[in-house]
């Protein structure tokens, strides 16, 4: 009986057709290949890319120079100098991130008590000159200002899971 079954299976090319069904199905199904850079895959709100320093809504920088990010950074990529600003608050005078050293672990963001340093979802960046790998406070704040809406919405989306 088994042999008979096997004969018919072979005779009618059942296995082949089964295979072709998958092929045919893929032929007409929706493609997952994206035409990067014209098309991009969606990213998780937890994506860890380029760093940014955020501000409060009133324009005040969030960073209070507590140096916890510097302390927690496993790659020693962050360098901070701090001082007392004229109004008596604690502020950084220097906030450098060395993007060559950074391993994008996100510990700095975890450590930050004021949600100042964040990792944005920007992952497409390059350097053309030596030394450009170190981004300073001005640059970090600029990134923060420019992408604040994206940063805030990503944080908002992730909030229920934290």
């Amino acid at each position: 009986m088994t042999m008979v079954k096997q004969f018919f299976k072979n005779f009618f090319l059942v296995e082949l057709l089964k295979g072709l069904r998958v092929t045919g199905g893929q032929l007409i199904s929706k493609k997952i290949t994206v035409q990067y850079p014209d098309e991009k895959t969606p990213k998780s709100p937890r994506f860890r890319g380029l760093h940014a320093l955020r501000r409060y809504a009133n324009g005040e920088e969030r960073c209070i120079a507590c140096k916890l990010c510097e302390a927690v950074c496993p790659a020693l990529a962050i360098t901070i100098d701090s001082t007392e600003r004229e109004d008596g608050t604690r502020r950084t005078t220097r906030y450098d991130v060395d993007l060559f050293k950074c391993i994008y672990c996100g510990f700095c963001e975890e450590a930050c008590p004021v949600d100042s340093i964040v990792l944005t979802d920007i992952h497409e960046f390059h350097f053309e000159e030596k030394g450009m790998n170190v981004i300073d406070k001005v640059k970090l704040l600029e990134i923060g200002d420019k992408y604040e809406r994206d940063i805030a919405s990503a944080r908002h989306k992730d909030a229920p899971y934290r």
Partner: peptide, 9 residues
């Protein structure tokens, strides 16, 4: 010394 460094560093 105010705000200029952290003890651990």
């Amino acid at each position: 010394y105010r705000y200029s460094a952290r003890s651990w560093e």
